[in-house]
Nucleic acid binder design. Structure first.
Lengths: 187, 187
DNA sequence: TAAAAGATTTAGTACGTTTTAAATGTATTA
DNA sequence: TAATACATTTAAAACGTACTAAATCTTTTA
């Protein structure tokens, strides 16, 4: 392979590994996705293993996570019994899927616990403590509900809608004093 | 303490522990925050340790993380040499702080790597592969820039602005699949 | 100044997660 | 059917992170 492309690929693998780890998906899962993302053609399981120096078993497990999150699809080629993988390249789609499958449930669980906490506090004897606690829990719930509806909206928008909404949101940016045109397209 | 309040507190500790762990802060850090959140008065280091059955050293370290993220403040009481801690209860403020201190830098690092990847790919010999890769990296960068500006906007808005923006976002009606129009405010 | 009360640091340990090597499973071909 | 080429599961090992107990540091009081 062209040396430059090879280096380019390595940089991308690092980037995805980093992000993946940060979001709790595990470094190598992200790296595997990067391998697919960098390849115009679907990649076989063994090739992924070889290029990241990990075992096939490892790939088998990690790739399934990626599949379940809608980040990877498997495909087949006639006359070849191997399984190939290709990346979902639409990040808006991925965002939606990950929000729904990974974040939402975790969210709901916590929200349920907070709800439970509220109910129990309400049953407590009236006291200064009870009062403060309920006040705080109310703020917390308000915040949760807002987040929840944002997740809900994002989850149900298609990619173009998301893009449009994000652009709109971007327009809300307060122009910072003395800042040199932050984040705007040049020219 | 009132038995109900005690149960209520436990539910909250669970909720925060869960979320904290999910967001990569560690379970006990979240639990410690919950202890503070549930107490109308500032809490001493030792009391936190006792109520969560962990060592003071553990609290000392974890609480510092929370401080650095702006989730906890320390305070003192006259005639008492102990340090007390109290929670930041404004979640919008916390969101801003965590985004800026934790997410943004991680983000920027990855973005830098992608940028590097792009530059290297551009230097590669023209080929079908190079073409596809650059195309994909472009999409990726577009997505990153959007996220970046969302983070930027959120980071610079104050709590009321954030609340208002979120409410507005909430009004974006989900539009059925296949519909070409973007969401409009209800009513 | 010594003693006491507290917070922080440190070195080691326990734990959960990730990864591996090998065994097993499942088609496909001859 | 046996041989094969692959994917998946598994049990154990390696690893990293979170936690502990103990030592150390810091401040206050007597």
């Amino acid at each position: 392979m062209d040396g430059n492309l090879e280096q380019s690929r390595n940089a991308l693998i690092q980037a995805f590994g980093r992000q993946s780890s940060f979001w709790g998906l595990g470094k190598t899962a992200g790296e595997m996705y990067a391998v697919l993302y960098f390849s115009p053609e679907p990649v076989s399981l063994e090739e992924i293993a070889k290029s990241l120096q990990v075992t096939k078993g490892n790939v088998s497990i990690a790739i399934r996570q990626l599949e379940q999150l809608g980040m990877v699809r498997r495909s087949w080629q006639k006359g070849d019994r191997r399984v190939f993988f290709e990346p979902e390249t639409d990040f808006y789609k991925i965002t939606r899927s990950v929000l729904g499958l990974r974040h939402k449930p975790e969210f709901d669980q916590s929200f349920l616990l907070v709800e439970e906490s509220v109910q129990l506090a309400k049953q407590a004897d009236s006291s200064n403590k009870r009062h403060t606690v309920l006040e705080r829990l109310n703020m917390l719930q308000e915040f949760y509900r807002l987040l929840d509806s944002v997740v809900e909206v994002v989850s149900t928008m298609n990619s173009d809608q998301l893009k449009a909404a994000a652009e709109m949101f971007k327009l809300l940016a307060p122009v910072k004093q003395g800042d040199k045109e932050y984040g705007m397209p040049k020219g």
